[in-house]
């Protein structure tokens, strides 16, 4: 078990280290933009992992939470001239409140009903963002959202911004690992595995579920805020159900409940559409087929590949011995 964890830590460290080195070799804005999107996606998936990965509650409302974080930070910084640092805190507060609010339906609902509730929440946010044009700019969005400043360092280029979000992602990855291996993390897993057992131990399921939702919402809102200040433009067209599903796919493809899996999922699902551009009209069918195949043949995600490979090698070895006897 310890070996497995050490291997995963090594892989996480490698992944972050490699990401940090990429801009040194690829200064092209196209690649740097994708890197920024990738790391922001990673942050959101770390959050989604608490509620869907560890606690097993299907959340399809990520796009709505992400949108609220983005709009909160964008509007406060652009319209009121507040520092993006303050507006990011405001986005976190909004995420916290939404997480608490969204957590309550989860107490009475399970499975598909909870999915639909979170999905409906996300759609309500999108429709409001589209129709409250005087506030949100609707489908044509809000422009000129300011970038962050770190002390006297203005994050005015995509490379500088990347190192900023990279740092945030590393910190949140460490925090996620800490939570996942703490009492909270064990409680989340217990909710997924055996609710009755938890109740018999006298633990408060309400609190546990709401805590998981709140963590997911805080991470999602933070991701939204970082996204808004990166693009410096936000439109309601971005926050569709497709986005929520993309995050669930990232979680699933990487490996549900596994932080290394979150990193892998975010990297693969962000890069893949860009890598498949050359297919033109056939890109979507290819992308969907690849995701489906992965779901069918790797239900525990790409993170389980080394284990599967080792298992196959062992099997072959044993077979060979028998044959030789």
């Amino acid at each position: 078990m310890n070996k497995k964890i050490n291997w995963q830590y090594a892989m996480m460290a490698s992944a972050f280290l490699i990401l940090a080195l990429v801009p040194l070799f690829m200064s092209n804005n196209y690649y740097i933009t994708i890197l920024n999107q990738m790391v922001i996606n990673m942050i959101v998936v770390f959050g989604l992992n608490f509620i869907t990965g560890l606690a097993g509650q299907m959340n399809l409302g990520t796009a709505g939470i992400y949108a609220l974080g983005a709009y909160t930070s964008a509007l406060l910084s652009r319209n009121f001239g507040l520092s993006p640092w303050l507006t990011m805190v405001a986005a976190l507060v909004v995420g916290f409140l939404i997480g608490r609010g969204l957590g309550y339906p989860s107490l009475k609902m399970k499975g598909v009903y909870l999915s639909l509730t979170t999905l409906a929440f996300s759609e309500i946010i999108r429709i409001l963002a589209t129709n409250l044009m005087d506030i949100t700019g609707g489908t044509q969005g809000i422009k000129n959202i300011p970038r962050f400043r770190v002390l006297f360092w203005n994050l005015d280029t995509n490379v500088k911004y990347f190192y900023f979000v990279w740092t945030v992602a590393v910190l949140l990855c460490l925090l996620s690992m800490r939570i996942a291996h703490s009492k909270w993390g064990r409680e989340f897993k217990a909710v997924k595995d055996n609710v009755e057992a938890i109740e018999s131990l006298g633990l408060d399921i309400k609190k546990i579920k709401i805590r998981a939702f709140t963590l997911a919402a805080v991470y999602g809102a933070l991701g939204g805020a970082l996204y808004a200040h990166f693009n410096q433009f936000v439109t309601s067209l971005s926050f569709t159900t497709d986005l929520s599903i993309s995050y669930v796919i990232m979680l699933m493809i990487g490996g549900i409940g596994n932080i290394l899996g979150n990193i892998i999922g975010a990297i693969v699902i962000t890069i893949l559409p860009e890598m498949l551009r050359f297919l033109g009209d056939y890109y979507q069918i290819t992308f969907c087929t690849m995701v489906l195949l992965c779901a069918v043949f790797l239900p525990n995600g790409l993170v389980s590949l080394p284990g599967r490979f080792r298992h196959l090698v062992k099997k072959k070895g044993k077979g060979g011995e028998r044959f030789g006897q």
Partner: peptide
């Protein structure tokens, strides 16, 4: 194992980099 993992990941990323500049011909011809 850490060094090996890093090398593998770097080569994979380099591969992605190479594959990411789509060829107009292919994009166009579909």
């Amino acid at each position: 194992s850490i060094t090996l993992a890093m090398c593998l990941a770097l080569s994979a990323l380099a591969g992605c980099g190479g594959g990411q500049t789509p060829q107009p011909s292919q994009t166009q011809a579909a």
